[in-house]
Structure formats: C-alpha cells, structure tokens
C-alpha cells in the first residue's frame, strides 16, 4: 500500500532529531561544517545528507516568525526523476510509493535527473551515485516507521497509509485555516510527502514548492520526456526564483 508522510511544520521545533536519526540509520558520516551565521547546518543536501531542517526568520504583519522546514525527497506520485531516467534498475518506485535510487544511478546523466526534480533534491555522492531520502524502506518493509518519524518528539512528522495521512493532513489544514487564511498543504495531490504550512511556502524555503508552478508549466508537462530539453529552461527559472 502506498505510504505517505505528513509533515506539520506548525508543530516542528527544529530540534533536528530527524536530521541526526536519518544519518544514524542510513550510516551517513557527518560533514565538516562551520557556523555561517545560522543554526541551519549542513548548508545543503549532499551525498552524505538526505535531510536538512531549513530555518527562516520573517517578519509578517509586525510579528516575527521563525519558520522551520524539514527538507527531504517528496517521493512524487509521478516522479519526474524516474520518468527522466527511464531505467528502472537505476530509479524505481517501491511498493510503498518510495522513489528509490540504486547504485546504477551512477550511469545516468546526473544533471538531467537533478534538474528534472521540481524540488532540487537529488545530489551526487563522491562515488558518482545519485542519492536522496529512500523513505527508510528497509524499516518500512519490516513494519517500522522511517527513522526521522520515529524520533520526532512533537508529532510534526507522521507516517502511514496514504489515505489515513491525507485525511489527517486535511483535518489539520482545516483547523489551521481558522487561524491562518494562507495555510496550505504543499502540492498535496502530487506528493507522498505532504507539508502543512501556515504561510507562503516560499517564506519557508526557496524549494518548498515546485518551482515551475510559478511559470505556468505543469508537472505533467515537465515529466514528459519530450520536454526534457526544457530542463535547461527550468534551471534558469530556478535561478531567477
């Protein structure tokens, strides 16, 4: 059965237990970082980092907001990376709905895959393999929750069957709408990782919402490989965005 995440950013305290749990379960080494004037670290997703809690300070209507956004692969329902790769031995969809990158991604054109992603998630590891969150499918197949969900103390990260998660997400949205008219579930229909935000997703993180949506290009168009040359245009759009 298809599984989904529900990430309620209004409950996230950015404790970053999820970031650490992810690395611990995936056996990923720490990066040598420096403080660049923010709590956010490592600075970006990488071959060794599949999850980064993004933090952004915004003043809205005279009130300070500190937005937290645990960034990870969205496990798209129709995944542009998979469609672009056209090679199920390199990128395939697991029975859970997880989009899985295998070692064979080393043979793909990394730039094509990365630029196909509407959220700029995949990264190239040192050995040339493309990497990202794999939904901890090894855990999920054995009845466990992904490591990040398991460790979350506030219930900001939830995981389960898609139908249950979608109904939870809709309930939380309805409740939040009463307080914040701009509340939304980001790209809900397209994704198995559903984020609830109380304000414009762009305030949270530049790649919180699919970038090409702002340029009148639909997801369906983007995933069709005849549009592959368009990836360059999308890239340019991203740079502007």
């Amino acid at each position: 059965m298809t599984k989904s995440f529900f990430i309620d950013t209004t409950l996230c305290t950015a404790c970053r237990g999820c970031q650490v749990a992810c690395k611990q379960w995936q056996g990923l080494p720490a990066e040598k970082t420096v403080n660049k004037g923010s709590y956010e670290n490592p600075p970006d997703l990488s071959g060794n980092t599949y999850k980064v809690v993004r933090m952004s300070e915004k003043e809205r209507n005279g009130k300070l907001k500190w937005f937290f956004f645990p960034e990870q692969c969205r496990h798209c329902i129709e995944a542009p990376c998979l469609e672009t790769a056209e090679d199920s031995s390199a990128i395939y969809k697991d029975k859970t709905g997880a989009i899985i990158f295998t070692k064979k991604t080393k043979d793909l054109v990394a730039d094509d895959i990365i630029s196909a992603c509407p959220y700029n998630v995949p990264r190239v590891a040192k050995n040339g393999i493309l990497t990202k969150c794999n939904m901890c499918v090894d855990r999920v197949h054995n009845g466990l929750k992904p490591a990040c969900v398991k460790t979350c103390p506030t219930g900001a990260m939830q995981f389960g069957d898609r139908s249950t998660i979608v109904s939870k997400a809709n309930k939380s949205l309805a409740k939040l709408k009463r307080k914040s008219s701009k509340a939304q579930l980001i790209d809900q229909k397209d994704l198995n990782v559903i984020y609830l935000v109380e304000d414009n997703p762009k305030y949270y993180f530049k790649n919180a919402i699919a970038s090409y949506k702002y340029e009148g290009i639909t997801r369906q168009m983007a995933i069709r490989k005849i549009f592959r040359p368009l990836t360059n245009i999308i890239k340019a759009v991203e740079r502007i965005g």
């Binding site: 970053r16 690395k23 611990q24 720490a30 670290n41």
Partner: peptide, 12 residues
C-alpha cells in the same frame, strides 16, 4: 559526537 558537531560546530 560528529553528528552533533555537524549541527552546531562552533561557539557563537
């Protein structure tokens, strides 16, 4: 612990 130093590497 490397995984924690990665998050907060320096006194600020």
């Amino acid at each position: 612990q490397d995984l924690l130093m990665e998050l907060q590497p320096q006194v600020f």
